[in-house]
Computed example of a mutant assay.
Amino acid sequence: MTTVSLLSIAETERESGIHRDTLRVWERRYGFPAPLRNERGERAYTDGQLNRLRLLKQLLDCGMRPAKIIHLDENTLRQLANQLNETTPVPALVDSLLEALIVGPRRSLEQQLEELLQKNGLRNFLIEVVAPMNHAVGDAWFSGRIGVLDEHYYSEVVIRLLNAELSRMSKNSGYPRVLLTTLPGEQHGIGLLMAACMLCLEGAETFSLGVQTPLDEIVRGAVESQCNIVGLSCSEYMNRRTISSQLVRLRKLLPAKTSIWAGGSGVSKIQYLPTNIQLFAELHQIPSAIEAVKNKVI
């Protein structure tokens, strides 16, 4: 007898990037996803539903409306997603790394990344290798080309490499002082490490709280550490409306003198935020932003 793997609503939210409240609304309004129920009567989702939800999330982030696509089957959704991906060519180097992740052996990917770090230096490694590779891995995960195992393995390799680089950097006090974390619900931490590396390269001092820090604790950490900036990493897995609302709330809670910097693919299409919230579409914007902050002090 075959055992069907089922996911809770919390797991489905995490793996699809779609908030659980949205899942419930879609269930009532569109009839999808129509979850099963476990022995406790709680919603339970199949792998097939998760695959469709991932594709829906990818298409919604490109501007499509749920009512237009939610009833399409997985193959049709995948075709639409592939058409969108074809408009954004993947650099040959990234394509080679992605192939190593998919086909293996896994050690080959790790060796290639280590060699690229040594060859290019940390700054160029972050901008020219890790940043585009993150996008490619995310697209491959959403489209079903890779699984959770592959995505987690890639993340762990990059995290190990970046942590090693950070440990070798000077721990002397710098300016500005930046508190780094993610918003509640954001579990991906690679962006935090990338930002920490770039900031340290520019002479900033960083304090990392890890992922998913409650807003009131972010405020407490920023105040107690006398930070000039709160830096937030927002991935494409998190709903942009949720990101926007939490940024607005955090802005109200923080002292006026403390800036908010938010970066990552999750903020790429966000507009109309309060003043003193600066959005970063790309890593290479960090050096000029740090320079501007330092010039204000002079």
Rank of each mutant, 00 (worst) to 15 (best):
I286C: 04
L126K: 09
K57T: 07
V223T: 10
L109E: 10
L232S: 10
S8R: 02
H188A: 01
A34T: 13
V148M: 13
E42Y: 08
L273N: 14
I290L: 02
D73V: 01
R160Y: 05
P176Y: 05
S108W: 14
S225R: 11
P214T: 12
N85S: 09
S170E: 10
L109T: 06
H188K: 01
Y153N: 03
K119L: 10
G63K: 02
E186A: 03
A204H: 04
Q246K: 15
N163A: 09
M194Y: 00
S235C: 10
G48M: 03
V178Q: 09
G191F: 00
L55H: 08
E224G: 11
C197L: 00
G31K: 05
G104V: 03
K171P: 15
K269F: 12
P132W: 01
D47K: 06
I190K: 10
H71N: 11
G231A: 15
C234Y: 03
P91T: 02
T213E: 05
Q118P: 10
V25P: 04
M169D: 06
N239T: 07
L192P: 06
S259E: 13
E86C: 08
K269P: 09
N134L: 13
S173I: 08
S244D: 14
N51E: 15
G203M: 01
L50G: 07
S170Y: 01
A292N: 12
R78I: 07
V178W: 04
A10D: 12
V25H: 04
C197D: 00
T22S: 08
W26C: 03
C197H: 03
P105W: 07
L55D: 03
I190P: 02
G203A: 08
T181S: 10
H19V: 01
Y153K: 02
V4G: 03
L117I: 07
A195G: 02
A222W: 05
Q285Y: 06
T182Q: 01
K294W: 05
A195S: 09
K257F: 11
T275F: 14
